[in-house]
Amino acid sequence: MSGGSQLENANPVIFQRSGERQLTAADEDEDVHDPIDDREIFDLIRSISDPEHPLSLEELNVVEQVRVQVNDAESTVSVEFTPTIPHCSMATLIGLSIKVKLLRSLPNRFKIDVHITPGTHASEAAVNKQLADKERVAAALENSSLLEVVNQCLTTRSV
């Protein structure tokens, strides 16, 4: 964070955090079934920390609620994320963090698709291919230093 290490993007644009989801009476009613919706998926990933900044992906606008699609009935989730700059070297890592967070937090009936918002990154295709490949994701998580960074991104900061 300090001294010699230079950040790729030291002064990024900051976006406002959306508040906590409003509780409704239906949420507390035992008899109502709440389907998994876009906002719920967004709430899962918005608090992931950026590997570079002590900021969340939401504050950097890397993830947005409109770029999250879920279909509870068909058990599919699709998340698009937008790197802050087109040459961001962290794009794969961010994608991996999102993917791991969803794998850990969703029932295993879901098919999870994480990819870069079209046209926002220089090596979009390569990153998407890596993230879509189950074998590669599994292999990446075998690597303890990669797993360490991912876990740090997923650790909820105690502020």
């Binding site: 709440d34 709430d43 899962l44 850990r104 937090s105 360490e148 876990n151 909820t156």
Partner: peptide, 30 residues
């Protein structure tokens, strides 16, 4: 794993948090 698919969202939220913490136990960076 089953509570992740609970019918109530509030329960799922607790389950996600608990499971996330347990994943970090004994894992590098956790």
């Amino acid at each position: 794993a089953p509570p992740l698919d609970d019918r109530k969202r509030l329960v799922r939220r607790e389950a996600v948090q608990a499971r996330g913490e347990w994943f970090l136990i004994g894992s590098p960076g956790g």
